[in-house]
């Protein structure tokens, strides 16, 4: 099987690389046609002398023509140099590197919860189709799915932090927590993680639940399900052995694409909860017209989406024997 699929795999990887290159080009021009002047942000001094402004322009390469800037951008990329952040005055790689941990933690936890609970919810709904459980599950999923994350986040803060005072609403760690024992630090981290992870997970549960439900209902109307019932399998076995593995296929694709997108999609949640991750960083970089940093983040997001797609293709090969050719 691996032998047969190596060409398929090569094709997929080549496609991914081409896509990344196109993204690189778009990435450069997109931010430069955006209104706003990075220099005024850089100088932070409305009365800066003409000379000082000129100096800054030269320093950041903003005095050159667009094509020249693009040429340099590509040259630097080859050397894996993503430039220096205007805001932090540090290499972009370093800035992003410092924020990627918290984002991965937040996303990993909430996606994991959402995948397990969402798929479970979908199966429960589909196997009780038309009954109270199903109606309840659909309503809940629709509500969760359609709620904007920032709204849900603020409601959760209001209930859990303001009214009940159960969980902190800001940041990832309590100041000075690093002086206590490791398990107290972990508890502190978990307490901070709870609300943002719940916000993200809840919206995703709605989405995955709806998807799994409709996919499973479709599969349950297939002929091979009747065959499975005729063999004498119980309704539970029919769903778990024959329905579920088939219904999972479209859901896997949706989840993988989502996985890549949520890196950027966490922007609202991270902003509401002041979570020190990539989403929050992107928000700040946008506000400050930090071109190199924005380019770096966009590139990261794009690569994540493309890699997630690639992974879903690979996973599909394992799950569906028909995809080999």
């Amino acid at each position: 099987m691996l032998f047969v699929s190596s060409r398929y795999l090569g094709n997929k990887i080549a496609q991914a690389l081409i896509t990344i290159f196109i993204v690189l080009c778009v990435n450069f021009f997109l931010f430069r046609i955006m209104p706003g002047d990075p220099l005024s942000m850089l100088m932070r001094n409305p009365r800066a002398s003409q000379q000082a402004i000129q100096k800054a322009k030269e320093l950041y390469g903003l005095d050159q023509s667009l094509p020249a800037q693009f040429g340099r951008y590509l040259q630097d990329l080859v050397k894996l140099d993503f430039g220096v952040s205007f805001m932090f005055k540090k290499p972009v790689v370093e800035v992003i590197g410092g924020k990627i941990g918290p984002t991965l933690l937040l996303l990993g936890v909430s996606e994991l919860i959402a995948i397990i609970l969402g798929i479970y919810l979908g199966i429960v709904a589909a196997s009780h189709r038309g009954r109270i459980v199903d109606v309840g599950a659909i309503s809940l999923s629709l509500l969760l799915y359609s709620l904007p994350t920032f709204l849900l986040g603020m409601v959760l803060i209001l209930v859990f932090s303001v009214y009940w005072g159960l969980f902190p609403s800001v940041g990832m760690v309590t100041a000075a927590a690093k002086f206590s024992s490791w398990w107290r630090q972990s508890l502190d981290l978990l307490a901070h993680l709870f609300l943002p992870a719940m916000t993200l997970a809840l919206t995703l549960i709605g989405e995955y639940g709806m998807l799994m439900r409709s996919s499973l209902i479709e599969v349950l109307s297939e002929d091979f399900i009747v065959t499975a019932r005729a063999k004498g399998l119980s309704e539970r076995e029919v769903i778990h052995k024959h329905g579920y593995p088939n219904a999972l296929l479209p859901v896997v694709t949706a989840i993988s694409i989502n996985l890549g997108l949520t890196i950027a999609g966490a922007i609202q949640v991270e902003t509401v909860f002041s979570w020190p991750g990539i989403g929050r960083l992107m928000y700040d970089a946008l506000n400050n017209r930090d071109y190199p940093l924005l380019q770096g983040i966009f590139l990261l997001v794009c690569i994540c989406v493309i890699v997630a797609n690639l992974l879903s293709d690979l996973l599909y090969m394992v799950l569906d024997p028909r995809v080999k050719s």
């Binding site: 002929d223 091979f224 009747v226 065959t227 019932r229 004498g232 799950l319 024997p321 028909r322």
Partner: peptide, 22 residues
């Protein structure tokens, strides 16, 4: 359910989609 297939089994329109594809 336990009598199905043991006493009475069915040949469906198998050329179509009566076998689980995965």
């Amino acid at each position: 359910r336990m009598r199905r297939w043991k006493d009475v089994s069915i040949v469906f329109q198998g050329a179509m989609n009566s076998l689980n594809p995965v």
